[in-house]
Design a protein around this nucleic acid. Structure first.
Length: 243
DNA sequence: CGCCAGGGCCTCA
DNA sequence: TGAGGCCATGGC
């Protein structure tokens, strides 16, 4: 099985994901048009905020935090730069790690005051990535989520699900490095930002409800091609033989 | 109660 | 460069 085959199976199974979602009022919306048009500067800003807030945190907890920021009318780089740290952390409390994340948002926003989104759009993928990676609190996954979903540049986002799923499927060892894995995906897939967007979203969906830490292999379509399942089947067979 | 969530930073060897 | 600790809420 190749990476594109797995992608096609996931699309058949889960359908289009239309990431990255935007909060409208109190609703979190996923729209097909996100795949067809450029994001507005406001949307890009929201994607940056969301990408930081969702670090090791469930998205439902992030939605509340974003709504709080918007309803308190501080959802802009300038306002967030001005607000007291303690107030900011209280507004984003639901997203967890609120002291760290408040600091991260501050640093991002002060960066944005000196770097207009319209100017950032002109940078190469590499330079754009480096800009975000140089900020405290933004690592590979957060930077690449921003570059891919916000700026619509073809960078493959690797997360814990990607490592878990594809190491189980036998593509690489579980402890492989971020850049190694990203390189593997980018070299074995067409260079398409829309493909990367959908693929990452599908990986998250698959990792959440089937290929979990304790995987539900009985309901999984990849059974025959999964090294993880083969290994378990082997050790199970050995266990039976020995006992 | 324990486990996990759309990670990243710091420290110490 | 690898392993381990730390950050913290909310859903199940």
């Amino acid at each position: 099985m190749k990476l594109i085959d797995i992608y096609n199976l996931l699309v058949d199974f889960y359908g289009e994901q239309n990431w990255w979602p935007i909060i409208e009022g109190r609703e979190c919306v996923y729209k097909k048009e996100f795949m067809e048009r450029e994001r507005t500067d406001e949307e890009i800003f929201e994607i940056m905020i969301g990408a930081i807030l969702t670090q090791n945190t469930s998205w439902t907890n992030v939605i509340v935090a974003i709504i709080n920021l918007k309803e308190n009318n501080i959802f802009s780089p300038y306002k967030i730069s001005e607000i007291e740290n303690s107030k900011l952390s209280q507004l984003i409390k639901s997203a967890g790690y609120f002291n760290q994340k408040a600091k991260k948002l501050k640093i991002l926003c002060s960066f944005l005051l000196n770097n207009k989104i319209s100017e950032l759009k002109k940078l190469s993928v590499y330079d754009l990535r480096q800009k975000f990676l140089s900020l405290w609190g933004i690592g590979y996954e957060t930077a690449d989520s921003i570059v891919l979903y916000g700026f619509n540049k073809p960078v493959f986002v690797v997360d814990a699900y990607t490592k878990r799923i594809f190491s189980r499927l036998g593509f690489f060892p579980e402890n492989s490095e971020y850049e190694t894995i990203r390189d593997l995906f980018e070299k074995n897939l067409p260079q398409s930002s829309n493909l990367y967007k959908e693929y990452h979203a599908l990986i998250v969906e698959f990792g959440k409800n089937l290929c979990k830490k304790r995987p539900l292999c009985n309901n999984c379509s990849f059974n025959e091609n999964c090294a993880y399942l083969h290994k378990n089947a082997q050790s199970f067979a050995q266990f039976i033989q020995q006992s």
